[in-house]
Write a protein that binds this DNA or RNA. Sequence first.
DNA 1: CCTACCGATCGGTAGG
DNA 2: CCTACCGATCGGTAGG
Lengths: 225, 225
Amino acid sequence: MRDQILREATRLMAAHGANATSVQSIADAVGIRKASVLYHFPSKEALRKAVLNELLYRWNDVLPRLLLAPSTSGQDRFEAIIFELMSFFASEPDRARLLVRELLDRPEAMEQYLKSYIQPWLHVVTKALDEGRRSGVVQRDIDPTAFALQMTVLSLSSIATADSWWFLLDSDKDTAKVRHLTELARMAHASLFGARVAPNATRKIGSFEANTEAYDTQSLRSIKG
Amino acid sequence: MRDQILREATRLMAAHGANATSVQSIADAVGIRKASVLYHFPSKEALRKAVLNELLYRWNDVLPRLLLAPSTSGQDRFEAIIFELMSFFASEPDRARLLVRELLDRPEAMEQYLKSYIQPWLHVVTKALDEGRRSGVVQRDIDPTAFALQMTVLSLSSIATADSWWFLLDSDKDTAKVRHLTELARMAHASLFGARVAPNATRKIGSFEANTEAYDTQSLRSIKG
DNA sequence: CCTACCGATCGGTAGG
DNA sequence: CCTACCGATCGGTAGG
């Protein structure tokens, strides 16, 4: 039951914001009384924090795959990191929406979360980018930390707001999503390496198309690569 | 008085969201009674729409400079468009915050706004990028419409959420802002043209530093180029 | 632009 | 996990 409350709270808070989500609306979605929700979570604030912690806990599932990977400065490594980043949000857009809302609603409170969850990851990526820059693989005039942050914000927020503007991209929602993620990956590649997309990048982008099925909870028709 | 209400409403709704901003809090900020706010604007919904329309009206100030410019496909033109885009949000971050919130809160209602205000602009930029691509100035594998959308979303949302994460970039807020905008411009350039930053791009980036003073309403110390 | 007031809903509690 | 209830605040109105 606790999990069910958490799931509905995540969905509603991602859609309308934590402030605009009443405890009553969560209770209705679960099918219980409001007082019962407040039995599992002592206050609405506690529920909000639980939702955010659950989200960041999932981030810890994906982090090790990035941090423990060998610290080479090859293109493959950077492609993999960007792929994981995009997949994390694309596979569960509510995460993206919730995070953007928290960044807007509680900037000072998010600092400690970013320090715990993003700072270490950012440090490793910055180091790898610096190496790549010295060895000439990565563009010389890049600002490694700023680049990593921008790519994170771009993945996060473009997926969070996609429901509003995908129609500008294509009348078919699935096609729009593929074009959205493909161009995102291309921009990341070009920003890092400058030149045209390498063969292996095309392979990576291809896997987005397979991954797109998990982009939304709605059932999506199969997409051909 | 109407303008004063509109100004405080914009500020509060950008900071906390329209749903979380009470008419009472706006009245308090202006220094009048709640009923007096509802004399100038018949309902909270009308006030919210007035705030959004005011914002989009300002967008119409910047649009002509982009649409009426000669439709060449040179690098200068693209640099100029991206500069206007970034300046529009950087000079008034409340705009960015408000727009991101609206995109999240009312995706279906935003469609008509995007159709009126973004679609025509997007069409022109797409055409120019297509020309540039054919003439070899712009990267061949670019998706023009998706690229223009991504750059808009990136400028918009990175400025909207910057208060949360600028400390990850630099302990000095002004320095962080300059690095943020400079890397944003570099990414746009590299995504478009692939190679290193051209001399004229450096000039453009330089003007961001002057522009940064308007980044925030807080007083900022002078930044050296 | 104000005072005074409306019903509805808010987060939360008592008590079982 | 429920019923029943709390004071506070919500958007909005009547009437001046």
